[in-house]
């Protein structure tokens, strides 16, 4: 394991432990946020980190998931697992709709299309009738909590956060498996040089479209988790800034490195929480929320410039093939040719 990553990971866990010692509910909330954002940033890692797709509308896909799950639960009493499933399907459909025309074009088009879709979804949600379930600018209410049968609120929160962490683990496992397989190689090949990937026979259009669709489905799941945590949704929480927070998490964590991305997520959220707490004690001639957004912008630029690989750089795709190489090396077949080059 990478040293930087290990040290930072221990610090993160330690900070959460301190929070937990002070206030359990607060720590649970913190853990939920990390799990929620980690699912979102892992989905972006699949799209951008592995496949090189520029999805600038992540928040829109989360919103689709959240609202579909929310409406199904609030208006139709659909049980929690089905809501999550529906959220994934709906977000995937939106992803495919954007992807079909754009992933075969230059990267700019996907970037512009996703950011526009993200804003379209938000403004559409704002303009839904306020007297319908959707709630318009007043927001969506009446989502049924999945663990309503647990009476103790702390225990209920604990159960739900536990479930979220479990879902996060599932997503992490899946993307890690995708990444460490021949598929991971193909996706990275497309990211590094699409024409070369085509020239070695990869149907890049299909891969890019699937990557965007599945990434969107995962974002939809994150959205559903969000809906059932707060039991209330407001269109104005799904602003583009959320998307770029997620980008920061992936960029500082390290693209195509899932552990790095989760670490990046935890770091960004902890910084956010700590500044929220600190602002009550330290007075600066600045508005902390705006300042934080400026920092998000600055961090994006600085990392791209000085550490584009992120805090935890990506690793070679891990498949059994390396054993074959190792054996060949042991047999002494990997000798450099006599003298020249090196």
């Amino acid at each position: 394991m990478d040293k930087v990553g290990l040290v930072l990971g221990i610090i993160v866990v330690a900070i959460i432990a301190v929070f937990a010692a002070i206030n359990v509910s607060y720590a649970l909330d913190l853990i939920f946020f990390i799990a929620f954002y980690a699912i979102a940033s892992l989905s972006l890692n699949l799209e951008y980190g592995y496949t090189g797709l520029s999805n600038f509308g992540k928040v829109g896909f989360i919103a689709v998931g959240a609202y579909i799950a929310g409406v199904l639960s609030a208006a139709f009493n659909v049980p929690f697992p089905l809501c999550v499933l529906a959220a994934a399907v709906a977000a995937a459909a939106v992803g495919a709709f954007v992807g079909i025309p754009t992933v075969k074009l230059r990267e700019d088009y996907l970037g512009m299309a996703t950011i526009i879709i993200g804003e379209m979804i938000r403004i559409l949600l704002r303009n839904t009738p306020t007297n319908s379930v959707w709630g318009g600018v007043f927001g969506l209410r009446g989502i049924k909590p999945p663990f309503a049968f647990i009476k103790d609120p702390l225990a209920r929160q604990f159960a739900y956060v536990g479930l979220s962490v479990f879902l996060f683990g599932l997503v992490y496992w899946l993307i890690e498996r995708w990444g460490n397989s021949p598929l991971g190689r193909v996706l990275k090949a497309i990211r590094d040089d699409e024409l070369a990937a085509k020239s070695v026979g990869k149907f890049t259009y299909r891969y890019k479209l699937l990557s965007l669709t599945l990434g969107s489905a995962i974002a939809g799941i994150a959205g559903a988790l969000y809906a059932f945590y707060f039991l209330y949704l407001n269109p104005d929480t799904f602003i583009p800034l959320i998307t770029f927070m997620i980008w920061v998490m992936v960029i500082i964590g390290g693209m195509a490195n899932n552990a790095g991305v989760v670490l990046g997520t935890a770091i960004v959220i902890l910084i956010n929480r700590i500044t929220q707490i600190a602002k009550d004690y330290i007075k600066l001639p600045l508005e902390p929320n705006y300042f934080q957004a400026m920092l998000v912008g600055l961090l994006i630029i600085l990392f791209l410039m000085f550490r584009p690989q992120g805090l935890v750089p990506e690793k070679p795709v891990n498949t059994p093939s390396w054993e074959v190489l190792e054996k060949a090396e042991e047999e002494g077949r990997a000798k450099p040719p006599g003298g020249e080059e090196q």
Partner: peptide, 28 residues
């Protein structure tokens, strides 16, 4: 530094956020 097209776009979003929230800061 040979940044890719996507990286340039992301950087321009970074610039956008920085400018926009600096202006918000100014209004505050």
């Amino acid at each position: 530094r040979n940044a890719s097209l996507v990286q340039l776009m992301v950087a321009s979003i970074g610039v956008a956020l920085f400018i926009r929230y600096a202006l918000y800061e100014m209004t505050w």
